[in-house]
Amino acid sequence: MPISGYVVKAGANRIAEIRRRIRDMDGVELGPAVDGQFALAAYSEDENGAERFGESLSSLPGVDQALLVYHNFEDVEYTG
């Protein structure tokens, strides 16, 4: 159950639309939008799920950058 915190950066006129799309995703909590960026936290079933989530976030139309800023993987077993 990896937990990730992101800062999403986008053009101010796209923020509302992007937030609507993200709100529909499973396991996501959104923070308030400030100056063309906002925070979100998400949990995933496993590390690959976390990776897919990060990729889908980055590829949303209008997203300039989705920066991972926190990552907790305390119940993930050995990898590789």
Partner: peptide, 19 residues
């Protein structure tokens, strides 16, 4: 624990986003 860590992640990310 999951809710707690989600809040932790969100507050940290929000701190960075807001400065």
């Amino acid at each position: 624990r999951r809710s707690f860590l989600l809040k932790t992640a969100l507050s940290f990310a929000a701190g960075i986003a807001s400065g």
